[in-house]
Amino acid sequence: MRQSGGVGTRILAVEDDERIRTAVKLALEDEGWAVTEAATGEDALLAFQQEPADVVLIDIMLPGIDGFEVCRSIRRGSDVPIVMVTARADTHDVVAGLEAGADDYLTKPFAPKELSARIRALLRRARTSEVSSPHLRFGDLEIVPEEGVVRRSGRDVHLTKTEFRVLVELAQSPGRVFSRELLLERIWGYGYFGDGRLVDVHVRRLRTKVEADPANPRHVVTVRGLGYKLRV
Protein backbone atom coordinates (compact mmCIF):
# COMPACT_ATOMS: atom_id res chain seq x y z
CA MET A 1 0.00 0.00 0.00
CA ARG A 2 1.21 3.50 -0.84
CA GLN A 3 2.23 5.77 1.96
CA SER A 4 -0.19 8.70 1.78
CA GLY A 5 2.01 11.57 2.87
CA GLY A 6 1.96 15.11 1.58
CA VAL A 7 4.55 14.65 -1.13
CA GLY A 8 4.04 11.88 -3.61
CA THR A 9 0.33 11.79 -2.94
CA ARG A 10 -1.49 10.70 -6.06
CA ILE A 11 -4.96 11.89 -6.93
CA LEU A 12 -7.16 10.41 -9.64
CA ALA A 13 -9.52 13.07 -11.02
CA VAL A 14 -12.48 11.77 -13.05
CA GLU A 15 -14.27 14.56 -14.90
CA ASP A 16 -15.60 14.65 -18.46
CA ASP A 17 -15.31 18.42 -18.95
CA GLU A 18 -11.79 18.88 -20.18
CA ARG A 19 -11.39 22.50 -19.08
CA ILE A 20 -12.63 21.84 -15.57
CA ARG A 21 -10.40 18.78 -15.36
CA THR A 22 -7.35 20.74 -16.46
CA ALA A 23 -8.05 23.64 -14.13
CA VAL A 24 -8.60 21.32 -11.16
CA LYS A 25 -5.44 19.42 -12.03
CA LEU A 26 -3.46 22.68 -12.10
CA ALA A 27 -4.90 23.74 -8.75
CA LEU A 28 -4.23 20.38 -7.10
CA GLU A 29 -0.73 20.25 -8.50
CA ASP A 30 -0.13 23.62 -6.84
CA GLU A 31 -0.78 21.81 -3.55
CA GLY A 32 2.08 19.48 -4.41
CA TRP A 33 0.00 16.47 -5.36
CA ALA A 34 0.37 14.35 -8.47
CA VAL A 35 -2.82 14.23 -10.52
CA THR A 36 -3.91 11.53 -12.92
CA GLU A 37 -6.77 12.53 -15.22
CA ALA A 38 -9.60 10.39 -16.56
CA ALA A 39 -12.36 11.63 -18.85
CA THR A 40 -14.66 8.62 -18.59
CA GLY A 41 -15.59 6.01 -16.03
CA GLU A 42 -13.95 3.30 -18.10
CA ASP A 43 -10.68 5.26 -18.26
CA ALA A 44 -10.87 5.88 -14.54
CA LEU A 45 -11.24 2.20 -13.63
CA LEU A 46 -8.40 1.28 -15.96
CA ALA A 47 -6.14 3.99 -14.53
CA PHE A 48 -6.99 2.94 -10.97
CA GLN A 49 -6.17 -0.69 -11.80
CA GLN A 50 -2.81 0.26 -13.23
CA GLU A 51 -1.84 2.57 -10.42
CA PRO A 52 -4.02 2.94 -7.32
CA ALA A 53 -4.39 6.56 -6.14
CA ASP A 54 -4.47 7.91 -2.60
CA VAL A 55 -7.65 9.92 -3.21
CA VAL A 56 -10.20 9.62 -6.02
CA LEU A 57 -12.29 12.58 -7.18
CA ILE A 58 -15.35 11.53 -9.22
CA ASP A 59 -17.91 13.67 -11.01
CA ILE A 60 -21.22 11.84 -10.87
CA MET A 61 -22.32 13.02 -14.31
CA LEU A 62 -20.16 10.98 -16.67
CA PRO A 63 -20.80 9.64 -20.12
CA GLY A 64 -20.84 5.85 -20.25
CA ILE A 65 -20.72 4.26 -16.82
CA ASP A 66 -21.66 6.95 -14.32
CA GLY A 67 -19.90 8.14 -11.22
CA PHE A 68 -21.93 5.92 -8.86
CA GLU A 69 -20.86 2.84 -10.76
CA VAL A 70 -17.21 3.92 -10.86
CA CYS A 71 -17.40 4.46 -7.11
CA ARG A 72 -18.93 1.03 -6.47
CA SER A 73 -16.37 -0.68 -8.72
CA ILE A 74 -13.44 0.95 -6.95
CA ARG A 75 -15.00 0.19 -3.54
CA ARG A 76 -15.19 -3.50 -4.34
CA GLY A 77 -11.42 -3.75 -4.16
CA SER A 78 -10.18 -0.73 -2.25
CA ASP A 79 -10.78 1.46 0.80
CA VAL A 80 -9.27 4.49 -0.94
CA PRO A 81 -10.92 7.79 0.09
CA ILE A 82 -13.39 8.95 -2.57
CA VAL A 83 -14.79 12.46 -3.04
CA MET A 84 -17.92 12.78 -5.15
CA VAL A 85 -18.79 15.89 -7.13
CA THR A 86 -22.55 16.41 -7.46
CA ALA A 87 -24.69 19.01 -9.13
CA ARG A 88 -26.71 19.92 -6.06
CA ALA A 89 -26.52 19.35 -2.34
CA ASP A 90 -30.22 18.83 -1.76
CA THR A 91 -30.87 16.06 -4.24
CA HIS A 92 -30.83 12.36 -3.79
CA ASP A 93 -27.48 12.27 -5.62
CA VAL A 94 -25.62 12.97 -2.40
CA VAL A 95 -27.14 10.08 -0.49
CA ALA A 96 -26.80 7.81 -3.51
CA GLY A 97 -23.15 8.76 -3.88
CA LEU A 98 -22.43 8.15 -0.21
CA GLU A 99 -24.23 4.85 -0.38
CA ALA A 100 -22.17 3.90 -3.40
CA GLY A 101 -19.15 4.26 -1.11
CA ALA A 102 -18.04 7.88 -1.32
CA ASP A 103 -16.43 9.34 1.81
CA ASP A 104 -17.33 12.94 1.15
CA TYR A 105 -18.89 15.13 -1.50
CA LEU A 106 -18.65 18.58 -3.03
CA THR A 107 -21.16 20.49 -5.13
CA LYS A 108 -20.29 22.33 -8.31
CA PRO A 109 -19.00 24.96 -8.54
CA PHE A 110 -16.61 24.46 -5.66
CA ALA A 111 -13.53 26.45 -4.84
CA PRO A 112 -10.32 24.45 -5.37
CA LYS A 113 -9.28 25.49 -1.85
CA GLU A 114 -12.35 23.70 -0.55
CA LEU A 115 -11.40 20.59 -2.50
CA SER A 116 -7.83 20.69 -1.14
CA ALA A 117 -9.19 21.00 2.38
CA ARG A 118 -11.43 17.97 1.85
CA ILE A 119 -8.59 15.95 0.41
CA ARG A 120 -6.29 16.90 3.27
CA ALA A 121 -8.93 15.86 5.80
CA LEU A 122 -9.31 12.50 4.06
CA LEU A 123 -5.56 11.95 3.93
CA ARG A 124 -5.24 12.86 7.59
CA ARG A 125 -7.99 10.41 8.40
CA ALA A 126 -6.21 7.75 6.41
CA ARG A 127 -3.06 8.32 8.45
CA THR A 128 -4.49 8.82 11.92
CA SER A 129 -6.60 5.72 11.70
CA GLU A 130 -3.41 3.81 12.27
CA VAL A 131 -2.44 5.39 15.58
CA SER A 132 -4.71 4.62 18.45
CA SER A 133 -5.36 2.70 21.62
CA PRO A 134 -5.09 -1.07 22.13
CA HIS A 135 -7.60 -3.74 21.67
CA LEU A 136 -11.33 -3.02 22.15
CA ARG A 137 -14.06 -5.62 22.53
CA PHE A 138 -17.86 -5.22 22.57
CA GLY A 139 -19.70 -8.52 22.62
CA ASP A 140 -19.04 -10.23 19.32
CA LEU A 141 -17.26 -7.12 18.01
CA GLU A 142 -13.49 -6.80 18.27
CA ILE A 143 -11.59 -3.67 17.24
CA VAL A 144 -7.82 -3.45 16.90
CA PRO A 145 -7.18 0.22 16.07
CA GLU A 146 -3.42 -0.24 15.78
CA GLU A 147 -3.78 -2.78 13.04
CA GLY A 148 -6.86 -1.17 11.51
CA VAL A 149 -8.70 -4.43 11.94
CA VAL A 150 -12.29 -5.11 12.96
CA ARG A 151 -13.61 -8.62 13.60
CA ARG A 152 -17.17 -9.74 14.12
CA SER A 153 -17.47 -13.19 15.69
CA GLY A 154 -13.83 -13.78 14.92
CA ARG A 155 -14.19 -12.90 11.23
CA ASP A 156 -12.43 -9.92 9.62
CA VAL A 157 -14.84 -7.17 8.60
CA HIS A 158 -13.71 -4.92 5.77
CA LEU A 159 -14.35 -1.25 6.50
CA THR A 160 -13.42 1.85 4.54
CA LYS A 161 -11.13 4.25 6.32
CA THR A 162 -13.96 6.62 7.13
CA GLU A 163 -16.21 3.85 8.44
CA PHE A 164 -13.34 2.64 10.54
CA ARG A 165 -12.76 6.13 11.94
CA VAL A 166 -16.44 6.47 12.86
CA LEU A 167 -16.35 3.14 14.69
CA VAL A 168 -13.10 3.91 16.52
CA GLU A 169 -14.33 7.38 17.49
CA LEU A 170 -17.43 5.86 19.08
CA ALA A 171 -15.51 2.93 20.57
CA GLN A 172 -12.97 5.13 22.34
CA SER A 173 -15.73 6.55 24.55
CA PRO A 174 -18.19 3.69 24.74
CA GLY A 175 -21.64 4.70 25.90
CA ARG A 176 -21.03 8.39 25.24
CA VAL A 177 -23.45 10.05 22.85
CA PHE A 178 -21.79 11.70 19.86
CA SER A 179 -23.80 14.38 18.07
CA ARG A 180 -23.63 14.44 14.32
CA GLU A 181 -21.91 17.80 14.53
CA LEU A 182 -19.19 16.39 16.76
CA LEU A 183 -18.59 13.42 14.47
CA LEU A 184 -18.54 15.74 11.46
CA GLU A 185 -15.88 17.83 13.11
CA ARG A 186 -13.77 14.96 14.42
CA ILE A 187 -13.85 12.83 11.30
CA TRP A 188 -14.56 15.11 8.36
CA GLY A 189 -13.21 18.35 9.78
CA TYR A 190 -16.44 20.14 8.94
CA GLY A 191 -17.63 21.38 12.29
CA TYR A 192 -21.10 22.59 12.79
CA PHE A 193 -22.04 23.20 9.19
CA GLY A 194 -21.30 19.82 7.76
CA ASP A 195 -24.02 17.78 6.16
CA GLY A 196 -25.52 15.42 8.75
CA ARG A 197 -26.28 12.94 5.98
CA LEU A 198 -22.55 12.16 5.79
CA VAL A 199 -22.76 10.76 9.31
CA ASP A 200 -26.11 9.04 8.79
CA VAL A 201 -25.06 7.22 5.62
CA HIS A 202 -21.72 6.18 7.06
CA VAL A 203 -23.35 4.82 10.19
CA ARG A 204 -25.83 2.96 7.99
CA ARG A 205 -23.02 1.44 5.95
CA LEU A 206 -21.08 0.63 9.08
CA ARG A 207 -24.06 -1.21 10.52
CA THR A 208 -24.43 -3.44 7.49
CA LYS A 209 -20.91 -4.61 8.21
CA VAL A 210 -20.63 -4.83 12.00
CA GLU A 211 -24.21 -5.66 13.00
CA ALA A 212 -25.73 -9.12 12.82
CA ASP A 213 -29.08 -7.44 12.08
CA PRO A 214 -28.48 -3.93 10.65
CA ALA A 215 -32.18 -3.04 11.03
CA ASN A 216 -31.95 -3.66 14.81
CA PRO A 217 -28.44 -2.53 15.67
CA ARG A 218 -26.95 -3.77 18.94
CA HIS A 219 -23.63 -1.95 18.82
CA VAL A 220 -23.98 1.34 16.94
CA VAL A 221 -27.29 2.72 18.17
CA THR A 222 -29.18 5.92 17.46
CA VAL A 223 -30.03 8.23 20.35
CA ARG A 224 -33.05 10.06 19.01
CA GLY A 225 -32.54 13.75 18.57
CA LEU A 226 -29.02 13.61 19.94
CA GLY A 227 -26.78 11.43 17.82
CA TYR A 228 -25.11 8.04 17.98
CA LYS A 229 -23.31 5.95 20.53
CA LEU A 230 -21.62 2.59 20.85
CA ARG A 231 -23.53 0.47 23.31
CA VAL A 232 -21.31 -1.14 25.94
Binding site: R19, I20, A27, F110
Partner: peptide, 8 residues
Protein backbone atom coordinates in the same frame (compact mmCIF):
# COMPACT_ATOMS: atom_id res chain seq x y z
CA UNK B 1 -19.02 24.47 -15.56
CA UNK B 2 -17.32 27.58 -16.96
CA UNK B 3 -17.51 29.10 -13.50
CA UNK B 4 -15.80 26.05 -12.06
CA UNK B 5 -12.99 26.37 -14.62
CA UNK B 6 -12.66 30.09 -13.99
CA UNK B 7 -12.58 29.68 -10.21
CA UNK B 8 -9.91 26.99 -10.38
Amino acid sequence: SPLMTLAA
